[in-house]
Computed example of a mutant assay.
Amino acid sequence: MSLYEEWIPYGDRLRYSGFAARPANVTSSLPAVIVLQEIWGVDRHIQDVTRRIAQAGYAAFAPDLFAHAGSRPEELDFDRVDAAKSFLNTIPQSSWRNPEERGAALALLPGDDGRKIGETLERLFNLGGSYDAFVEQIVAAAAFLRDTYAPSRGQGVASVGFCLGGGLSAALAAKDDQLRGAVIFYGSLPPTIPVEPIRAKLLGFYGEQDKRITEAVPEFAQKLAAAGKSFEYHVYPEAPHAFFNDSRPAYHVRSARDAFVRTLSFLQSVLE
């Protein structure tokens, strides 16, 4: 399928931006799907997922949570983040967030590479202080797609998020009572998310090996059920964290394939 792709500004004073993709030969307004990034940003993988969802017949949009007024901080430049991901592939995952072990491996890199990658990882691993700003940005994205963006104006909006974006997908459901559905791929669920305001249906996908995140899901499901909310979730045997990311060593093809089929079926049901 031929797609039309563009980076577009949105929000108050056009201070935000995102990557948009939609079927090129469709002139009618389309339902919209917000694709919410992992901590790596709107990288090649997230752009590819956005295209896949667009190919299913949606106006897909990935807000760049790291960009403001058209620019990114130097340490979160696309190339810098790619270099940081490549570095992490060379060390045990248990060392990723261990400053001493990570620092020892960074010290072995040539030239200025260790300093630059270290700065990028420090920024990526400490995004908690930006959480409220991220939520504000994605709420603005939903309103933009529903009310302003011509290819989706007047249509329903749903969200699909991964890791950082998975938690944000749930947070968006709690903030936007017009959201039709929210898909959560292995996202940490902040305990402060209120369940009562949620009107959207929720769908979650988790890896059995991703214990820190997956073991918290039943409690969240019980809270939603007690409040009369809709939440279906699946835990994939042998799957690790980030099992859907086919650009990472964690990719688990059987789980990813099943989750994508279920995601498309869910989107069809909530956006029809």
Score class of each variant (00 low, 15 high):
residue 105 A to L: 04
residue 225 A to G: 13
residue 28 S to M: 11
residue 23 P to N: 11
residue 250 A to F: 02
residue 214 T to N: 07
residue 147 D to N: 12
residue 215 E to T: 15
residue 101 E to H: 03
residue 186 Y to G: 01
residue 214 T to S: 14
residue 182 A to R: 05
residue 203 L to S: 04
residue 70 G to Y: 10
residue 54 A to D: 03
residue 209 Q to D: 14
residue 215 E to I: 12
residue 229 K to N: 07
residue 74 E to H: 09
residue 133 A to D: 15
residue 251 Y to M: 05
residue 147 D to A: 10
residue 80 R to V: 14
residue 118 G to N: 02
residue 8 I to K: 12
residue 155 Q to W: 01
residue 6 E to L: 06
residue 81 V to H: 10
residue 181 G to R: 03
residue 31 P to A: 09
residue 89 N to G: 07
residue 252 H to N: 11
residue 169 S to F: 05
residue 179 L to A: 05
residue 146 R to V: 07
residue 132 D to L: 12
residue 226 A to Y: 04
residue 7 W to T: 14
residue 216 A to Q: 15
residue 86 S to I: 14
residue 48 D to Y: 13
residue 24 A to Y: 11
residue 240 P to F: 03
residue 37 Q to T: 08
residue 86 S to F: 10
residue 147 D to P: 00
residue 70 G to F: 09
residue 255 S to P: 01
residue 256 A to C: 02
residue 150 A to R: 15
residue 213 I to V: 15
residue 71 S to C: 10
residue 96 W to A: 09
residue 19 F to W: 09
residue 147 D to E: 14
residue 79 D to G: 12
residue 32 A to G: 13
residue 37 Q to A: 11
residue 189 L to Q: 02
residue 108 L to Q: 15
residue 252 H to C: 07
residue 223 K to Q: 14
residue 251 Y to N: 02
residue 226 A to I: 00
residue 22 R to T: 01
residue 217 V to P: 03
residue 22 R to I: 06
residue 154 G to W: 05
residue 194 P to E: 12
residue 58 Y to N: 01
residue 5 E to W: 04
residue 113 D to L: 14
residue 90 T to M: 08
residue 99 P to S: 02
residue 153 R to Y: 05
residue 158 A to H: 03
residue 183 V to Y: 00
residue 193 I to Q: 11
residue 34 I to H: 01
residue 59 A to L: 14
residue 178 Q to M: 13
residue 77 D to V: 04
residue 121 L to M: 12
residue 69 A to E: 15
residue 180 R to V: 01
residue 143 A to M: 03
residue 94 S to T: 14
residue 152 S to F: 07
residue 146 R to G: 07
residue 245 N to W: 03
residue 165 G to Q: 08
residue 100 E to A: 13
residue 127 L to Q: 10
residue 118 G to P: 01
residue 79 D to S: 15
residue 155 Q to D: 03
residue 175 K to P: 01
residue 180 R to D: 02
residue 27 T to P: 01
residue 251 Y to P: 02
residue 165 G to Y: 03
residue 192 T to R: 15
residue 47 Q to G: 09
residue 138 I to Y: 05
residue 221 A to I: 04
residue 93 Q to S: 14
residue 32 A to V: 11
residue 182 A to F: 05
residue 181 G to I: 06
residue 114 G to C: 05
residue 60 A to K: 05
residue 138 I to C: 06
residue 181 G to D: 04
residue 122 E to N: 15
residue 240 P to I: 02
residue 201 K to H: 10
residue 158 A to R: 04
residue 54 A to G: 02
residue 39 I to H: 07
residue 51 R to T: 04
residue 74 E to K: 13
residue 181 G to L: 03
residue 165 G to M: 06
residue 224 L to A: 13
residue 236 Y to I: 08
residue 33 V to G: 05
residue 134 F to S: 12
residue 31 P to R: 07
residue 222 Q to T: 15
residue 111 G to Y: 09
residue 193 I to S: 09
residue 215 E to W: 13
residue 142 A to K: 05
residue 23 P to Y: 08
residue 110 P to T: 10
residue 155 Q to A: 04
residue 266 F to V: 04
residue 4 Y to A: 12
residue 228 G to Y: 08
